[in-house]
Design a protein around this nucleic acid. Structure first.
Length: 426
RNA sequence: GGGGGGUUGCCCGAGUGGUUAAAGGGGGCGGAUUGUAAAUCCGCUGGCUUAGCCUACAUAGGUUCGAAUCCUAUACCCCCCA
């Protein structure tokens, strides 16, 4: 892929929000370059908010450039005030190490660390930790006119707010700017990309590069991934959607994308996947023609789930989906059921209760927590809203016996369309 | 300090001695329809071992064959006068 191809691709995907000197950048990219994006190691896992940035690096790498994923071990100790309304809690050093290790593992799915132009994973703590305060002030600080800093949106908005801004956070920009200069010197990295909220920090680095190295550096920002009603993508009431399957099951991950609003789905495809322009246009047409089929959502969910969780992850998500939307449950193993229903509340009962006369269905629902009382359980059954292993319960005097187990020890109860509970008999 | 009004189920709100487990609405829950959307339509909405029983209309007592409805006391809320 040539430089013009890459820029063309970024443009049709809508990934270029702002960039410095576009013509010069195009020229620069005709030769293999090194590009960097910074990531905040705030947790042991990345969430979907970082995916766009990782995909962006990946696009550069596939076009023949070398990506650097920079984890902010040093900057993470300070906290970027950009877009934050309050002073951030500082992370401990051990926590940071754990976070960086976790994040690094996940990045392997996105970037090639082996090939001819391997991606680099760097930690700015490595060059910041023995940089003395005095030297930093002499070499870096003196290149920052306070006036220009105060002019930055991220600083100004915080100064105007009640929360204010500590000196530490104020200095954050110098650290990130210096990272860029350091990478330019050590790795010949002349391009920094990031989300549009990083523009101020990126240009600070460009300015510093000119002053310290007399070199022209370049910046490129992508739009933020927001929903059509202006919220950050990847957040649910329950919290962020993580890439770590232990935090967000492949099924939950799949479902998040499967249920993206029509108004947002095409943007997600453009920003987050490598689905081609031809297919993109086709999907776009299908969304307009027949939104009910959710063709775009389906494709988005499949693509991303497979990309992040592998073929296995996608399959388990699809199996779970099939079950969650009514497929009958038989011949499953406890292990599979456990994975599929991992977010579903479960109750452990004595195996004995299934023997003899068995367990009264009303009591089973009451114990599962799906109904608050036996009366409510009876009512639900009468209304046709009670299911065992996705088969509707017809009689309120039904009794459950070992025959009704779906796995070795598990039984799946459901109330209404989506509320599940697991009974384990041990 | 004096006078008046109120307190009903998750919420709002009818009900002033007898099919009142309590009208109506909202919410919630099911079902149908649908696109795993929205809207719509229908049903349910105190508990239990459910042809029955128990508990419920601020709280505690009382009158009565029978009370959410009448009486007494208590608590809380609102209004008017000083």
């Amino acid at each position: 892929m040539s430089a013009t191809d890459l820029l063309h691709e970024l443009r049709w995907r809508g990934l270029i929000h702002q960039c410095t000197d576009e013509n010069a950048l195009a020229k620069l990219l005709s030769q293999p370059q090194t590009v960097y994006i910074g990531f905040d190691p705030t947790a042991t896992s990345l969430h979907v908010g970082s995916m766009m940035q990782l995909m962006l690096l990946r696009r550069f790498q596939r076009a023949g450039h070398r990506p650097i994923a920079l984890v902010g071990g040093a900057t993470g100790m300070i906290g970027d005030p950009t877009g934050k309304s309050e002073e951030r809690n500082l992370l401990s050093e051990e926590q940071l190490q754990a976070n960086i290790a976790g994040v690094a593992r996940q990045m392997r799915a996105f970037l090639d660390f082996e090939g001819p132009r391997p991606a680099l994973l760097l930690n700015n703590f490595d060059w910041m930790h023995d940089f003395s305060y005095l030297n930093f002030l002499r070499d870096v600080g003196k290149n920052f006119p306070i006036g220009a800093m105060l002019g930055k949106e991220s600083i100004r908005s915080r100064l105007d707010s009640e929360a204010g801004l500590s000196y530490t956070e104020f200095s954050y920009m110098l650290l990130q700017a210096y990272d860029f200069v350091h990478l330019a010197q050590q790795h010949g990295c002349r391009i920094q990309a990031g989300g549009s909220d990083q523009w101020g920090n990126i240009t600070a680095g460009i300015d510093l590069g000119r002053r310290m190295l007399g070199e022209s550096l370049f910046g490129l920002t992508a739009p933020l991934l927001l929903t059509s009603d202006g919220k950050k993508m990847g957040k649910t009431e329950k919290g962020a959607i993580w890439l770590d399957p232990a935090r967000t099951s492949p099924y939950a991950f799949f479902q998040y994308w499967r249920t993206v609003e029509d108004a947002d789905v095409m943007r997600c495809i453009a920003y987050l996947t490598e689905i081609t322009r031809d297919e993109y246009l086709e999907l776009e047409q299908q969304v307009t023609a027949d939104p009910g089929r959710c063709a775009a959502q389906q494709r988005l969910a499949e693509w991303l789930t497979e990309f992040v969780h592998g073929r296995q992850g996608l399959q388990s998500a699809q199996r779970a989906t099939q079950i969650f939307f009514g497929g009958e449950i038989e011949t499953w193993s406890d292990r599979e059921l456990g994975e599929i229903f991992e977010d579903v509340p479960s109750v452990v009962l004595d195996r004995q209760t299934l023997e003899g006369d068995g367990l009264w269905i009303v009591e089973a629902f009451q114990k599962s927590g799906l109904t608050a009382s036996n009366g409510e359980a009876r009512r639900t059954i009468k209304e046709g809203g009670a299911y065992v292993n996705n088969r509707r319960v017809n009689a309120e005097n039904q009794r459950l016996s070992p025959v009704d187990l779906a796995g070795e020890t598990m039984m799946v109860l459901r109330r209404g369309k989506k509320k599940y509970a697991i009974l384990r008999f041990q």
